[in-house]
Design a protein around this nucleic acid. Structure first.
Lengths: 155, 155
DNA sequence: CTTGAAAAGAACTGCCT
DNA sequence: AGGCAGTTCTTTTCAAG
């Protein structure tokens, strides 16, 4: 883990708010010249602190009106079973994120579908047939708020 | 919901893989001239299909080694109670996403902390004291995979 | 929809403090 | 580490077919 000073944290906060802005704008916003800001941003990218820019799409606009979070318990939890499950789940296009977790469930999946009938199809034909899948719990997304995270306020 | 043709879907898939590339690169990759690709991308942004570019940060690199998903049941679920809860939860910097869901839980929270003692502090002093918070369930993130979603394959 | 061109801006490089 | 000046590339916009 690399050490970041206040300026680095400011840059990350600025880029979190608007990932499209370039080194010039970032520099202006935190009292740095364009090359200086550019060097710091490059350093943050090279060090791995910045993983990349992800496109945020409006699922509804694209015809996917239903988003469901699934908690999955595996029936059998060997090493092979985890790998089989992950490989199989990665082949389902409707699955947006696969989170391996520790607790009441083994995996958490974010799944999108066009509507509820379409979701039922995905659930029955894709999810329930996953190798090793045991108990499945579902939560339907009503609304969502994403926040920058604890960058400046870092406790 | 606007209608998107195959080229639009291709553009979205390309940008999902690398959000940094510009209209020129996208055009080359899908057989379109640079201005044509630029106009389509602008149209996708203006229509709201593209919500924006979000910076992906490596939480561990930033000193947040622990990510926990919390499922929260509210004790009292009136309209006022929802608003109170959402306002209070939005004031906790360690909370990265707030999802209002339908099912076994009422809210799902993604929370980051420096380590487990730090997480315990957040849980006890911030989460458990939220107005209306009832039962809380936790899952600790081990690993995560994000995927583009069902853009081309759209069933 | 295309091409071409011009203007604007961003990325990147040396060199200097 | 940061700033300045300059080059190169891309993006963006316009005109015209």
């Amino acid at each position: 883990m690399m050490d970041l000073d206040d300026i680095d944290l400011t840059i990350l906060r600025l880029l979190s708010e608007d990932g499209t802005q370039g080194a010039g704008a970032v520099g202006r916003a935190c009292g740095l010249s364009q090359p200086a800001a550019w060097r710091r941003i490059k350093r943050l990218r090279d060090s791995g602190a910045i993983l990349g820019l992800r496109l945020c799409l409006d699922a509804e606009q694209l015809g996917f009106g239903v988003t469901v979070f699934l908690g999955v318990k595996l029936a059998t939890k060997g090493r092979v079973s985890l790998e089989d499950f992950e490989r199989a789940v990665s082949a389902i296009p409707e699955v947006q994120t696969v989170e391996h977790v520790l607790g009441l469930y083994d995996y958490r999946l974010r799944v999108v579908a066009r509507d509820l009938p379409d979701f039922e199809r995905v659930l029955r034909r894709r999810i329930m047939t996953l190798p090793g899948a045991g108990e499945v719990e579902a939560n339907v997304l009503l609304s969502e708020e994403r926040r920058p995270g604890p960058l400046g306020s870092a406790g």
